[in-house]
Every structure is written in C-alpha cells, then in structure tokens.
Amino acid sequence: MKLAITALAIASLWAGVASAQTDSYAQAKAKADADEAALPSPDRQALMAAQSATVDQGIAACATPNPDMTAFTVVAELDAAGRVVRTWREGGTPLAICFQKQLANRVLSKPPRAPFFTSFELSFTP
C-alpha cells in the first residue's frame, strides 16, 4: 500500500510540474508581458538596449532583397545569465523564422530571476 501511495504522490507531483511548463505561444507571451511589466526602470532600460541590438543584428542577418514585412512576435525564455533557452513565434514569414533562429543562444541582459520571459514584437512601416 505504501508503494502505491508513493507512486501516486510522484505522479501527482510530475503532473503539477508538467502543467507549470510553458507550451504555447499564448502562455509564453502572457508570461513575457507580466515579466516585462514587473521590471524596475533600470532593468527595463538594460533589457530594451539588449533587445534593440539583437533586433538590429538579427534583421541584418536575415535581410533579403524583397522581404515579407508582415508583423511578427517572438517570445524568448531567458536563463539566469540572460541566455535565450527557448523561443515561441507568432508569424510564419521567412523573416520571422530567420529572426527566431537568430535568437538561439543569444545573451541579453541578466534578468532579475529565471526563467524570465521577454518578447520581440516587430512591425514595419514603409
């Protein structure tokens, strides 16, 4: 009986951990919005500077003669050092896909906690 109770407790714990994971773009984006909103001003400014440099480098690396300039968003999960460990994307243009790939293993500013979620919302005007 003790073995059955222990197995049930482990299964319940595992289910709780699994449900806490971020599996969808919508979940990741909601976490990014909350994490970014909670940042104190100096941390927010550091993150924005790191994001700006990342966008500039990523867009330059993904440049093509006639890119599809449809807006897209990429959400990134950062570890304690600020390294991108996972991404989610809304938008399927070649530019969006390339930009998401450019984020792999990039290091942004060190977040106040890990995991930390942030989003890159890109739109283009002629």
Rank of each mutant, 00 (worst) to 15 (best):
T87V: 13
S19N: 03
P67I: 11
L122S: 10
I10T: 08
Q27C: 11
A26G: 08
M69R: 14
P42C: 04
D68S: 15
T87H: 03
R106Q: 13
D56Y: 02
S19T: 12
L95D: 04
W14F: 15
F72S: 05
Q27W: 02
N105T: 13
A49Q: 07
P40G: 06
G16R: 02
N105V: 13
F124I: 05
V84E: 02
E36P: 01
L47C: 06
A71M: 07
A71Y: 03
A37D: 09
S19Q: 11
S119I: 00
T70W: 03
Y25W: 11
G16T: 08
R106M: 05
M1D: 09
A71C: 07
R83T: 15
S41Y: 06
K101G: 14
V85M: 10
P94E: 09
G82R: 01
A37Q: 04
G82N: 03
V55A: 06
L95N: 05
P65R: 15
A80N: 13
L3S: 08
A96K: 09
I5V: 13
T54P: 07
F116H: 08
F72H: 08
E36A: 10
A80I: 07
A76L: 12
A34N: 05
K2W: 05
V55W: 05
A38Y: 00
N66S: 14
S19M: 07
P67R: 12
A114S: 11
S19F: 08
A114L: 03
N105A: 12
S24F: 12
F117Q: 00
P65H: 11
P112G: 04
I5L: 09
Q45T: 09
N66E: 13
L39I: 08
A4S: 08
A28I: 07
A63D: 15
D56W: 00
